[in-house]
Design a protein around this nucleic acid. Structure first.
Ligand SMILES: [Zn+2]
Ligand SMILES: [Zn+2]
Ligand SMILES: [Zn+2]
Ligand SMILES: [Zn+2]
Lengths: 163, 163
DNA sequence: TTCGTTTTGTTATGTTATAACATTTACAAC
DNA sequence: GTTGTAAATGTTATAACATAACAAAACGAA
């Protein structure tokens, strides 16, 4: 897996070209869905695009209102269905402590990320660390607990906001 | 801090005397609140007791309905205020992935636990591990992120249910 | 084209949480 | 013990998040 140390959190600053993030994410999503034989329909693609609108997690109802603005009246199930699909395909992540969703920056492999959420600017950086994964798994194994999913979210101040 | 390896998860089995858990938790809560100069009122104490009714996280509205049964009509703010107080005092924890609350088994010291949540029986074991804490903190520090709160929840099967 | 499956539309409702303001209670100062 | 003040609770309403149930449309294989 890519070393995220080198890129992580850089996006909080707003110094990057975010259009690249969106384009890359959508392209990868297209490819992945084709390779998996699942359909990235217009509705799903549009929701993915809206989630990728920024690196800040977005709530389902915020997606809904944007969708309603551009497409006329839209109902919650439309959004939740698309979000569920994107979650299943690993194209987005749910941030449990915010009831919100954020694009996954490397959806090709299954993973549980560590999310660093800035209290100030609201950005959420997805980080990966094999040592963390291993440490937690060691612990659960030692206790005889069969781990299946993991939620790891840290709230605080990102480097840009702490400065 | 106590070594939780020796006791953790034992409570999932139902083999323990849970009245001891409740009594201990309430006694400790009383003492802590006195020493901190905050008031563990009847309402707050009763909510704490209801949360401690089992080791399974309980939703605010489940607390509410139990409260309504015994005290007549009760409104959500009553419950949420008590829960907020108990959270502030570290007497309970919120399980983000369940929107539910569970008693803290060692409220004397500030801590972020690791919660092992069984998909089958619903129990949530609070575990502590200095290595995990350190590993995560190392990572956030290395990234220049100032960590303040942490959510770490693992879903899976507890030893009793995996067997 | 036809059939079965997947996706979307639509309506209604369930679940979780808070805002705003009135009332009561606790407690210390006088 | 009255009074002032702050903390806690009561009450009403509503916001925010999520799903159930069923109908209609789109898709894709036979
Ligand atoms: Zn970006
Ligand atoms: Zn990811
Ligand atoms: Zn117990
Ligand atoms: Zn605890």
């Amino acid at each position: 897996m890519e070393n995220f140390d080198t890129v992580s959190l850089s996006f909080c600053g707003g110094t990057h070209n975010h259009k690249n993030c969106v384009t890359t994410a959508l392209d990868e999503a297209e490819q992945l869905c084709i390779s998996r034989g699942v359909r990235l329909t217009d509705a799903r693609k549009r929701v993915l695009e809206l989630v990728w609108d920024s690196h800040n997690p977005i709530g389902a109802y915020d997606v809904l209102s944007k969708l309603s603005q551009e497409s006329g009246k839209t109902a919650p199930p439309t959004v939740y269905r698309a979000l569920d699909f994107l979650l299943e395909q690993g194209l987005i992540h749910r941030i449990e402590s915010l009831n919100a969703f954020v694009g996954c920056s490397h959806p090709k492999e299954e993973h549980s990320g560590l999310f660093l959420i800035c209290k100030d600017c609201g950005c959420a950086a997805e980080v990966h660390d094999a040592v963390i994964d291993k440490t937690i798994l060691n612990k659960t194994d030692a206790l005889g607990f069969k781990a299946e999913q993991r939620v790891l979210e840290v709230r605080g101040l990102c480097p840009d906001c702490v400065a």
